[in-house]
Design a protein around this nucleic acid. Structure first.
Lengths: 130, 130
DNA sequence: TCAACACTTTAGAATCATTCTAAACTGATA
DNA sequence: TATCAGTTTAGAATGATTCTAAAGTGTTGA
């Protein structure tokens, strides 16, 4: 609890009740993939009712501060990933199913980067099913 | 024109005026990345006014028939790619900028596929800028 | 401890890409 | 050329996300 407050403060985020609850859930040591909706549902199960607006605000605040990764895999929802290490994913659209690939993946044979551009990150998505 | 009709027919798509116009634009020999909006704009420039609903319908019809690839790169629009070969992309969110990577990319070190799942496709997105 | 204020939360409205509806239209077929 | 299934379309509906602006709350300095 106090460590969560410290954690938030050290990321220049004022430790409000809501952020403490959300951070407590997200950063409990197990990696998670959430959407605004799924997060809202999980917190509600735990009797924490937080407005959707705040959930969106908080996810973005955390994202902006590098505490979450954003994953664009489907056109109808955004996933946030608590695993901020360099990694990749198995994804099944059919089953809304997402698994981290933490193994060291190597991508070989890339052509040269377009002029005046810099590579920000290389993302590998292994699509399962059809 | 008649080849476009044939092309559509051979994909079990009735060659309507609108589909002929859209296919004529999309499959003119140069690969394109379009969104419903950008396609609508391009066609309008060429004096072809086609309702957005039809543009969406047609993009999906073409997609369902394997004439287009769908690219999910941003949460606020869907891209369709006329290059249906196995390939990857450079993408700059900042500049809405998308370039095909046709070179043979190798992805090494993948862990084993989750139980009872089959790999549909491997997608590599090289994100540029930040 | 507390006043003061900047930062947050929130309900509800707004946005915007996309899909749906159901009525009018049109290619294909006999 | 009549018929009908497949298409197109305007406009409404949807749904995730963002915005607004009013009420609430950490933080700070005295």
């Amino acid at each position: 609890m106090n460590d969560i407050k410290q954690f938030l403060r050290s990321n220049s985020l004022r430790p409000t009740k809501q952020r403490i609850v959300i951070a407590g859930y997200l950063f409990d040591g197990t990696n998670k993939h959430v959407t605004a909706e799924s997060l809202s549902t999980e917190l509600a199960k735990r009797k924490h009712i937080i407005s959707l607006a705040t959930i969106y605000n908080t996810l973005h605040d955390f994202y902006e501060n590098g505490l979450l990764k954003k994953l664009i895999l489907s056109s109808d929802r955004v996933y946030f990933d608590t695993n901020t290490n360099d990694h990749h994913h198995f994804y099944s659209e059919k089953d809304q199913f997402l698994i981290d690939i933490n193994k060291n993946i190597k991508v070989n044979g890339l052509p040269k980067t377009p002029k005046n551009k810099k590579i920000n990150k290389i993302e590998v998505i292994v699509h399962l099913d059809k």
